[in-house]
Design a protein around this nucleic acid. Sequence first.
DNA 1: AAGCGGTTTCGATGATTGTCGAAACCGAGA
DNA 2: TCTCGGTTTCGACAATCATCGAAACCGCTT
Lengths: 124, 124
Amino acid sequence: MSKSGQPLAVIDLNADGCCAPMAQSRIPSEAAGTLAQAFKALGDPIRLQLMSMIASAPGGEICVCELTPAFEISGPTISHHLKVLKESGLVTAERRASWVYYRPQPALMRRLSLLLDIDNQPPA
Amino acid sequence: MSKSGQPLAVIDLNADGCCAPMAQSRIPSEAAGTLAQAFKALGDPIRLQLMSMIASAPGGEICVCELTPAFEISGPTISHHLKVLKESGLVTAERRASWVYYRPQPALMRRLSLLLDIDNQPPA
DNA sequence: AAGCGGTTTCGATGATTGTCGAAACCGAGA
DNA sequence: TCTCGGTTTCGACAATCATCGAAACCGCTT
């Protein structure tokens, strides 16, 4: 892609018929709902930090038991925010023994990133 | 570029000390508020479509009079959503005669895009 | 100056959200 | 089977939000 200097020959439209940079074309209303839900999930300071901790976790996953003490809000509230992230499709959760581990979902992160990528110009 | 001699090839940290991909490092809590506000602004289907219409406008700007009839909600509500986008820093507005034109703010769009860019790996 | 069309502000209202404590759930040991 | 620590769900509440119609504002044009 543009960042690596290698042109992504064709914008890879997905099922919703949408993931081209928004600077190139208007987002179809059918796709706007799903995409807005993901952005909304990132639209809270706590959730944004949670997402960044999950995305940057060494090993690709992180335990709730490591997330909770990193904030000054209650456990149930952290759990609520993680649920919002999960329902938006940005993360997945897996229980192992007593602990639950969260991992990022790179596909959706890429899609949002590309959507905002104003430097990715349309083919000349 | 970077003030120190460290060869930050790609990542250009800004005043908040933050815009590296979230897959690389946790977002500082001081920056989370501002960034979350921008994501929140995009977290509504109407606003996301408005943003995409502004970002993809030929000539780099678009008139409110062209945005309003594209939706089935009232003028005041469109105006409200545009205000939210403006206050988040994603767009700017300029009045010329009776019409108001909105333009995207590429810097913030780039920052958000980079934040989500999971493929941008840290320097080896 | 008076009217007009485009846009924003104001005030109100129903819906959604972030937060908490209490309670329930779930695996692992004892 | 009983308890225990980690996690989620439930129920409640104050705060924020999306939306509307009415009113105000702002430049033209007459």
